[in-house]
Amino acid sequence: GSVVKEKKEKALIEVRPYVEYYNELKALVSKISSSVNDLEEAIVVLREEEKKASEPFKTDIRILLDFLES
């Protein structure tokens, strides 16, 4: 629970300088966080969101995924 939350919060802070739609990304992460149990599940849902998103938000999600998977 809290470790996953920390990882996601740290990821958002780390990617902030590189993303165009930070507030939207943060809102998406919050929405996903409330419906998943762990980081792996969150990553799966983020990948689905990435497929549906259009640029440049798609790239923002990709940047976040790269950080979460590192």
Rank of each mutant, 00 (worst) to 15 (best):
V3N: 12
S70Y: 14
L65K: 03
E9V: 06
F57Q: 01
K8N: 15
A42P: 01
D66P: 01
L12S: 01
T59E: 03
V36W: 07
E69I: 09
V3E: 11
E41G: 07
R16L: 12
I61C: 02
A42Y: 12
E49V: 05
N37T: 08
S54H: 09
N23C: 12
K26M: 13
I32D: 02
L68G: 00
I43W: 09
K52P: 00
R16A: 12
K52A: 10
E41Y: 05
E41N: 05
K51Q: 10
K52I: 07
L68S: 01
D38H: 06
P56F: 04
V45L: 14
R62M: 06
K58A: 09
I13G: 04
V19I: 11
Y22M: 03
A11D: 03
K26P: 00
S70C: 10
Y22D: 01
E69W: 13
Y18T: 09
E55I: 12
E24V: 08
V29E: 00
L28S: 00
L68P: 00
S54W: 12
E55A: 10
G1V: 11
E9K: 05
A27E: 09
E6V: 07
K5V: 11
K31P: 01
I61Y: 01
K10Q: 13
E41P: 03
E9R: 06
S35F: 14
D60V: 13
R62G: 09
K58C: 03
E50W: 15
Y18V: 10
E9H: 07
L65S: 04
E9S: 05
A42C: 14
I63T: 08
V29F: 15
I63Y: 08
K8G: 15
L39Q: 04
L68V: 04
K52H: 07
V45Y: 15
E48C: 14
S35T: 10
I43H: 02
Y18G: 09
A11G: 03
V36T: 11
I32L: 04
D66Q: 13
L46H: 00
L25S: 00
V36Q: 04
E14D: 06
D60H: 08
L68W: 05
S35D: 08
L46T: 01
K26L: 13
S54R: 10
A27V: 06
V4F: 14
G1M: 02
P56H: 03
A53Q: 07
I43Q: 04
V45K: 12
L46M: 06
V4A: 10
E49D: 02
A42E: 06
K52F: 07
P17D: 14
K8T: 15
A42G: 06
L46R: 00
V45I: 10
I63E: 01
A11K: 02
K51M: 10
K31V: 08
S33K: 03
I43N: 02
D38I: 08
L28Q: 01
S33A: 11
Y22W: 14
P17A: 07
A27Q: 07
I43K: 05
L64T: 02
I61M: 03
E24N: 04
